[in-house]
Simulated assay, not measured.
Amino acid sequence: MSILKRYFIELTFNGSKYHGWQKQENAISVQQVLNNAMSTLLRQDVETLGCGRTDSGVHATQLFAHFDAMAELDENKFLKSLNSLLPYDIAVNRLIPVHPEAHARFDAVKRSYQYQVHFKKDPFKQGFSWLLRDVPDIQKMNRAAAILKEYRDFSCFSKSNTQTFTNNCVITRAEWESNGSSLVFHISADRFLRNMVRAIVGTLISIGRNEINEDDLRKIIESKNRSKAGASVPACGLYLTEVVYPYI
């Protein structure tokens, strides 16, 4: 009887054509495409488990998943073969042997996202950044973003009925960076709720547009009511950029 060996796989993907990471009944997802390719390559049924889920249209420059294999795998050969089976918009970058109990979701200690915004029509940013007409006040947005680190319960930024045990998150970074004709929002936390980053960005943009003020953000967070927060911004500008584990 062969002993299953556990591996982490690091991948990156353009999420434009996918209904998020997680496998679904009636829609194509990154996980389903990856599972199918790996099952073909390894000649066994492979079920990956990701570090989290991404919404439809969201991209990832770094996402980890774990899986079990019946054989010991050579990283270079495995990556080359798997990439040849995957479509152009999904790429695998690393294969990492881990201990049998390692868990891609529960063992992650930090996750980071970026949200891209631009202000000048650019065909090469279509589908990869959100086009805004007017430039919001970045100083106001950064003062408001700093307030996020004072709180733990972010129910106001979460989709309802997500079946999570808690809506508490520890945010360690939240700031806007100006890159000329574009803005990037950076946010890091130990965990994120469904739709949380897009709802935070929408709320901060409302502050930057003077539709609400910075003090209103405290009232929104303390209300724990999603309807009080800003609208979710489009998925195209959102990227999962980093996932950190204590043993990688």
Results as ranks from 00 to 15, higher is better:
Leu34Val: 14
Met1His: 13
Tyr239Leu: 14
Pro136Asn: 10
Gln139Ala: 12
Lys120Gln: 09
Pro246Asn: 11
Pro87Asn: 04
Asn83Met: 02
Ala144Cys: 09
Arg133Cys: 11
Gln44Tyr: 09
Ser206Glu: 14
Ile221Trp: 05
Lys121Trp: 15
Phe124Asp: 07
Phe106Thr: 01
Pro97Arg: 09
Arg218Ala: 14
Ser182Ile: 03
Gly57Ala: 12
Ile200Lys: 00
Trp130Asp: 08
Ala91Ser: 14
Leu86Val: 11
Leu49His: 11
Lys224Thr: 05
Ile212His: 03
Gln31Pro: 02
Arg191Val: 01
Gln62Leu: 10
Ile207Tyr: 07
Ser232Thr: 15
Arg111Leu: 05
Leu193Arg: 04
His99Pro: 00
Gly127Val: 06
Asn26Glu: 04
Ile221Asp: 00
Gln22Ser: 10
Leu73Thr: 00
Phe192Tyr: 07
Met1Asn: 14
Asn210Met: 10
Arg173Met: 09
His99Ser: 14
Leu193Tyr: 05
Asn225Thr: 07
Ala60Val: 03
Thr172Pro: 00
Ser188Gly: 09
Ser29Trp: 03
Gly230Cys: 12
Leu95Gly: 03
Lys228Cys: 15
Thr61Leu: 10
Phe154Cys: 02
Leu73Cys: 06
Gly20Thr: 09
Lys140Tyr: 06
Asp216Thr: 09
Phe192Arg: 04
Leu34Arg: 06
Ile9Ala: 01
Ile96Lys: 09
Val197Thr: 02
Arg191Pro: 01
Leu63Asp: 03
Thr48Val: 15
Leu217Gln: 10
Ala65Asp: 03
Arg53Glu: 01
Val98Glu: 11
Ile96Val: 15
Phe157Arg: 03
Leu238Arg: 08
Arg43Tyr: 04
Gly208Met: 02
Glu10Ser: 08
Gly180Asn: 12
Leu131Asp: 10
Ala108Trp: 06
Ala108Thr: 06
Ile200Glu: 03
Gln44Glu: 15
Leu73His: 05
Tyr18Cys: 06
Val244Trp: 06
Phe8Ala: 01
Thr12Gly: 15
Thr54Val: 06
Lys149Leu: 15
Ser84Cys: 07
Asn35His: 04
Ala65Glu: 04
Asn35Gln: 11
Asp122Ser: 15
Asn36Pro: 00
Phe185Gln: 13
Phe119His: 06
Glu47Leu: 14
Ile187Lys: 00
Leu132Pro: 04
Thr48Gly: 05
Asn83Gln: 05
Ala229Gly: 14
Trp176Asn: 02
Arg226Cys: 02
Thr172Phe: 10
Val243Ala: 01
Ile200Asn: 00
Arg43Val: 02
Ile171Asn: 08
Ile200Val: 14
Met1Cys: 11
Val244Glu: 12
Leu95Ile: 02
Glu75Asn: 02
Val33Ile: 14
Asn83His: 06
Asn225Val: 03
Ala104Arg: 04
Lys140Trp: 08
Val92Cys: 15
Arg218Tyr: 11
Ser182Ala: 12
Lys77Glu: 04
Val135Met: 11
Thr54Arg: 01
Asp107His: 13
Tyr88Thr: 10
Glu47Lys: 11
Gly237Glu: 07
Asp216Trp: 03
Gly15Ala: 12
Ala91Val: 13
Leu85Lys: 13
Asp134Thr: 13
Val135Tyr: 14
Thr164Trp: 08
Phe8Cys: 06
Tyr7His: 05
Thr48Gln: 06
Glu25Pro: 07
Ala145Tyr: 13
Gly52Arg: 03
Cys236Trp: 05
His103Arg: 12
Asp74Pro: 00
Met196His: 05
